[in-house]
Design a protein around this nucleic acid. Structure first.
Lengths: 203, 203
DNA sequence: TGTACATCAGTGAACGCGCGTTCACTGATGTAC
DNA sequence: TGTACATCAGTGAACGCGCGTTCACTGATGTAC
């Protein structure tokens, strides 16, 4: 049996609508409170059609983590990399990218931050995997910034945590505070790295 | 009308049972998914009795933030302060206190961490207030550790964020990893502060 | 002291409602020959 | 080419169930006099 491109496209359109609707509703009342019918209604399909895309809400949530969050975090890395040349530093580039994405997709970011310590183990595990990728990219950027100087894992960890926190602040407090948030974050990272450069942080 | 101490005590016992039941259930399926009847059942009261204590689940959640999280964070500070003399450093004392409390009350910590970026604005605001208290205490501890040397806000902020993250890791990964988590956290804080002591972090 | 009344936490019955899920169906498209 | 059959996303009707909320009630305790 061949696949019909139009059919496939329509199917993906509806799946995407379900994911989008879920993010919007989750930002308002929390993912755990959402029902299958509520999401289907928001995505303009019959409740029973939901099952053509996901077995239940948990499966949809996993798709949100793996596709949505995965795409976001990979975008941070890729867009920051392509901006490396122009920007003053790769770290600043990745931070700017992260904060911009945060205010562009606040619902996705809130979902990521809330579910990172949320009740569903599958979500936590998938997010940890995604964030590990981000961490590797951040470590690279830090080492480039230090002209190849080795950066210990615990410093890269700290930078990622502070980045995520800053994104959360940007989402909670709004776009107009973004400049102040970025400055604070940059100062925090500079303090962390000055310790490393002088060899104070090595294990 | 006088208040009967026995009656009052019984009332508080049931209120506490509701809060405890909510934390347990929220750790398993997420606060937003909880219903009034489910919580009442777990607390061994009739569904209608719930209304004698809270108007709805959101009000109960606010009590959880203000009483529960408030008590936890104040305990961190107080118990760390009383241990200051014996411990090598006030910062180490407060960290140890935090990580210990995290593994002792994992449900409460998961609730705090998840709702900090959760969907309910009232929860976020109340938690921000509570964490501001913790931040002030941490700043004090840091300055004591630096023999009165001034510590900028952004460093205290970073330390608190890294502390909360470490507590989250302890809850997610279990007690046996606590030593490694504490060591990583201490290294991160040392790196941050070495930057400050040398004057690299001031605004 | 006794008697009448007020307060108030907890309760069981009952309500209407939205939920998740099942089922058989439609209609469009692809395949066999 | 035409005809018979397979696939599959979306659908409306229907189910039983647990939900939040209301209500009038109980019974224990406090207050007035």
């Amino acid at each position: 049996l061949r696949i019909n491109p139009e059919k496939k496209e329509e199917r993906e359109r509806i799946t995407a609508a379900l994911l989008r609707a879920t993010l919007q509703l989750a930002a308002a009342h929390g993912f755990a409170s959402l029902g299958l019918r509520e999401v289907a209604r928001a995505a303009d399909i019959a409740p029973t059609s939901f099952y053509r895309h996901f077995a239940d809400m948990e499966e949809l949530g996993l798709a949100l983590v793996e596709d949505g969050a995965g795409r976001l975090l990979r975008d941070w890395v890729a867009r920051a990399r392509s901006a490396e040349g122009a920007a003053k530093s790769p770290v600043a580039a990745i931070l700017h990218q992260a904060l911009t994405a945060a205010v562009e997709e606040p619902e996705l970011l809130r979902f990521i931050l809330a579910e990172r310590f949320g009740a569903i183990p599958g979500f936590r595990a998938a997010l940890e995997t995604q964030i590990a990728v981000l961490k590797a990219a951040v470590k690279d950027a830090l080492e480039t910034e230090l002209s190849g100087h080795q950066v210990p894992d615990f410093v890269a960890d700290a930078v990622v945590v502070l980045m995520l926190e800053a994104c959360g602040q940007a989402v909670n407090r709004g776009q107009e505070q973004m400049g102040a948030i970025r400055d604070t974050l940059l100062r925090q990272i500079r303090a962390l790295m000055s310790g490393v450069a002088r060899g104070n942080g090595a294990p």
